[in-house]
């Protein structure tokens, strides 16, 4: 069933972890503009936050903005080369299929 769920956002006290939590809440509720703003806030505090880049990649991928999504996944992988989900999504977008 294709649908949306709605909840209240978690309280934010302005630190990186709570901003990230808030951003993911917006993402899960398909409030992508709000989620982008929060992920960017998290990156302003810590530019080395691979998870924030990965999530921004997901939002762009959801919006069919392939180039931007690839850019974000690449940034996540530059920070954490073992970020499996980022690698899987990037490979999918580039067109690299998993070998049997």
């Amino acid at each position: 069933m294709i649908g949306k769920k709605k909840k209240e956002p978690p309280p934010s006290n302005g630190n990186e972890a709570s901003i990230l939590e808030m951003a993911k809440f917006y993402f899960l509720n398909s409030k992508y503009n709000e989620a982008i703003a929060e992920f960017k806030k998290a990156l302003a505090i810590n530019p080395g936050n691979a998870e924030a880049y990965y999530n921004l990649g997901l939002i762009h991928e959801n919006r069919n903005n392939t180039d931007e999504a690839k850019d974000m996944y690449e940034k996540a992988l530059a920070i954490d080369p073992d970020y499996k989900l980022a690698k899987d999504h990037l490979n999918k977008l580039i067109g690299i299929q998993k070998k049997i």
């Binding site: 993911k24 993402f27 899960l28 509720n29 398909s30 990965y54 999530n55 997901l58 959801n62 989900l85």
Partner: peptide, 9 residues
Amino acid sequence: PTITDEGQS
């Protein structure tokens, strides 16, 4: 959007 079993978006 979804959350994996490991809690990842």
